[in-house]
């Protein structure tokens, strides 16, 4: 057998996270979120999901998407799980629709790792939910966002060091 899950010692010293970097030329500046969100999407009719609430949380790692179906059953997904499903599943499929809906709100900023335009009211279950999200989660995320040049290291860091050979 070939054990492929060994960790090279050097990986333990890798630095993670965003860093400013300059190599003598100008770069675009983007704003990235620094806090997270717990988004609840609710199935309002068969296959149709709307955002019911968005509540800010201090750490991006604590972000969650809570999906509630017509029967009142709830499933909770982490940010990584939401990213994976939204990128692999057909957005029109039963599996993909809740995450497409979540991505149309402020949770979309987390999935793309950058701030964007104010989400439209149509993504929310009603105007009250939209206004609450804008003044609460949206405001909090914008106030805490920080600017960075578009340069990044640490890709793949902190993840499994399994072999990717086939």
């Amino acid at each position: 057998m070939l054990r492929k899950h060994l960790i090279l010692p050097a990986l333990l010293t890798v630095g993670l996270g965003l860093t400013t970097f300059s190599c003598g030329s100008d770069s675009d500046t983007v704003e990235v979120p620094t806090e997270g969100l717990v988004t609840t999407v609710k199935e309002v009719s068969t296959g149709d999901f709307k955002i019911e609430s968005e509540v800010p949380v201090s750490n991006i790692a604590d972000s969650r998407v809570i999906v509630e179906d017509l029967g009142g059953n709830r499933d909770t997904f982490t940010l990584d799980e939401a990213k994976m499903v939204s990128q692999v599943a057909d957005p029109d499929s039963r599996a993909g629709r809740p995450f497409r809906s979540a991505g149309m709100g402020y949770f979309g900023f987390l999935m793309l790792s950058r701030m964007g335009r104010t989400p439209s009211a149509g993504a929310y279950i009603n105007n009250g939910a939209h206004q609450s999200a804008t003044s609460n989660a949206g405001s909090s995320m914008r106030n805490s966002a920080r600017s960075t040049t578009r340069s990044k290291s640490g890709f793949g860091g902190g993840k499994s060091t399994r072999s990717f050979g086939g």
Binding site: T19, F21, S25, S151, K152, F155
Partner: peptide
Amino acid sequence: VMLPDLEINPDEGVF
């Protein structure tokens, strides 16, 4: 070089 150690700048390149 391990991937996490690379600095990737989409405007300039990989460093």
